[in-house]
Amino acid sequence: MVDIIVFVVSAAIILTGAIGVIAARNPVHSALMLVMTLFGVAVQFVAQEAHFLAAVQVIVYAGAIVILFLFVIMLLGVDKAEELDVGRLTAQRPMAFLAGAGVLASVLVSLLAGDESITGAREVGRAIIGGEDEADFRQIGRLLFTDYVLAFELTAILLTIAVVGAVMLARRVRGEAVDADTYLPEQARRRRIRETPVLLRTPVVETSDDMAEANSGGGE
């Protein structure tokens, strides 16, 4: 009974958070809703005996990744409401719901297919052994440093590269090159942005007013 309650509550949290993420007009709200979902997922991990992952989920996702999102939002000053209209791709929204429904349907069909395995997957026999001595993190650690040691080392390299790449991408270069063909001094002056180049093809004239407005609202 308890596990049903746990499941229902956490599922409600997860779905509320998820819908909140995609429905909130303000990116900050979306980020906070994402935290809610992540916590719900962490609860379900615990419910399924994955204590280590639950902890990692909270620490890495909620603690690091979402914080990073918030940092970026604050840094860029884009924490203003986004108009949720259809934008330029008019047919995008119905198609999006159609695609979502398609994904849901296909996954559900494959789940309800019964005993037959859709992908042909079988258990590979690394049984989870209960008991205090064989906690899940112990087993994960053993696997990581035996069977998956190469992949593990590769992730280390991947993370290093990611850090270096992020630094390279995000650093401000002095006298950053400006594409003269696409730099529109008129618009730049209207937006009171000095020495901030306009990237390549700027939006069509009709939206420039909105952007100027949004920008001044955002505060530099």
Binding site: S106, S110, A113, I118
Partner: peptide, 10 residues
């Protein structure tokens, strides 16, 4: 593409 892939397996 993802839907098509799953549909194929189904």
């Amino acid at each position: 593409g993802a839907i098509a892939t799953v549909a194929y397996f189904i």
